[in-house]
Amino acid sequence: MEDDPTVRRLLLRLVRSAGWEALAAADRAEAFHLFERGRFKALLSDIDLAEGEDGIRLAKELRLIDPALKIVMMSGRPGNENRARKEGLELFLPKPFDLARLTGLLRLFRLPRGAPKKPNCILIVEDDPAVREMLAHYVNAAGWEAVVAKNGAEALEAFQTGKFRLLLADVRLDEGIDGIEVAKRLLGLEPDLKVAMISGVPGASDRVKAAGLDVFLPKPVGLDALADLLELGRAHHENGVSKRILLIEDDAAQLDQYCQILRGRGYQVLGVQSAEEALKRVESERFDAILTDNILPGMTGLRAIPELKKKSKAPILLMTSRPSPDLEEDALLMGAAAFFAKPLDLERLDEKLRGAGT
């Protein structure tokens, strides 16, 4: 629950990268609407909301509906932490956020079953201890295993003891060889290693490109850019095969949300907003599974099932915010492999997608 759209997007990325399904609301009305549609394990809410709305009052109202709800209040205004505690709300995050504390809270609430199990390992080479710690916390929260080194010598030593999928290295290091030379040496040992260089020094990006290293992140490292990097570098799904999912959803916000969740779980995802567009895609591209909403502009998801089956062997999963026994029966009769009510049961969805194409 956050009225600032920039902060809201950042929190969504952080929480989803940690393996949770996250929904966001900007005001009390949106929050109650979402709460009526699904069951939530935790509420993360700003205290000072737009138009005089109060996050503490909202939290207490939602806890009356669900006494088991975990609540975390956040604010950058002095005195609000004491206000929250007086109301029996003990968990508090000060703004600007301490990434380590947010990560700790997510772990306290326990990741849902089926969340990423750190099948990936990343080597972080950074001489600034504060930046090194921040990067490691974010990488671990995103489902990776982070190993850190403060200089080139430590990086080379770490590389001898484990296999890494991704190297994230600062260009300028205080001791010994610089980050570009570290990358070159490690690529000599592991040609398939993915490399991303970071720096706040002017001209560093040109040096990186001249060395044949294409991925560069400027400092301060943006968490959105880092999340995209981790998503692109993520290893194949747990069974060793990268499943490719075609997702059909006309609501742009939900399309983005489900794409982020599925990518965070190791799938490749292509999102489209109509059945007609999906039919064009399956003519020229191969997918391991197709997940479609029912209510779409033009052809509905239900009507699209037999048309998609003519062009693709991928199992089709139908989802809807208006489930009924008749609709489920019709979907299965039309050839759907599974039927889902929204909000999605992610554990069951993951189970179905894992079995797709096998």
Rank of each mutant, 00 (worst) to 15 (best):
N120R: 02
P202A: 10
V15G: 03
R265W: 05
R37W: 02
Y138I: 09
L246M: 11
F159V: 04
G55L: 04
F164K: 03
L217C: 12
L327A: 10
L193I: 05
G152I: 06
I47D: 06
A331N: 01
L344N: 00
L123F: 09
D293M: 01
E347D: 09
A68T: 15
Q268H: 12
I261T: 15
G271M: 09
L223Y: 07
A337P: 01
G162A: 15
L296S: 11
Q160T: 12
V201L: 12
K342W: 00
A29C: 07
K352V: 00
G88H: 09
G335V: 01
G79T: 07
E351K: 01
L10I: 10
C259Q: 15
F97K: 04
A42P: 09
C259P: 03
T161D: 14
R263N: 08
F97C: 02
G355W: 02
E190C: 08
D206T: 10
F109D: 08
P5L: 04
A149L: 07
P96K: 11
L89I: 12
K243L: 09
Q160W: 00
E157T: 09
T358Y: 08
L291H: 02
A84K: 07
R132I: 01
S274H: 11
A253E: 14
A50P: 06
R265Q: 14
L255S: 15
N151E: 13
K163T: 14
G266K: 03
D330N: 10
V241H: 10
N151F: 03
L11E: 13
L23F: 07
L167E: 05
S17Y: 05
D206I: 07
D27E: 14
D178F: 03
L167V: 08
T161W: 05
A356D: 03
A304G: 07
R244E: 12
A341D: 00
E30C: 06
R39K: 14
D127V: 02
D127R: 07
L58R: 11
L189T: 08
D192P: 01
S199H: 08
S274P: 14
R107Q: 14
I198W: 00
L255K: 12
A289R: 00
E21T: 12
N239I: 06
A146K: 10
P297W: 01
G335E: 01
V171L: 07
V282L: 09
L135R: 02
E283V: 12
I248K: 04
D48Y: 07
E90T: 12
A225H: 09
R348L: 00
L189F: 03
D174T: 09
K117L: 13
E181F: 01
L193E: 05
P96M: 10
P129H: 05
F40A: 13
P96Q: 11
S321A: 15
P323Y: 03
K342P: 00
E21P: 07
A136F: 02
P94S: 10
A235L: 05
M197A: 06
I245N: 09
G200C: 04
N140F: 05
Q268S: 14
D288S: 14
D251L: 03
K352N: 00
R83C: 08
R165A: 11
P191G: 11
P297L: 02
E190V: 05
L102R: 01
A338G: 08
K60Q: 14
L230P: 08
D251V: 13
A204N: 08
G233H: 06
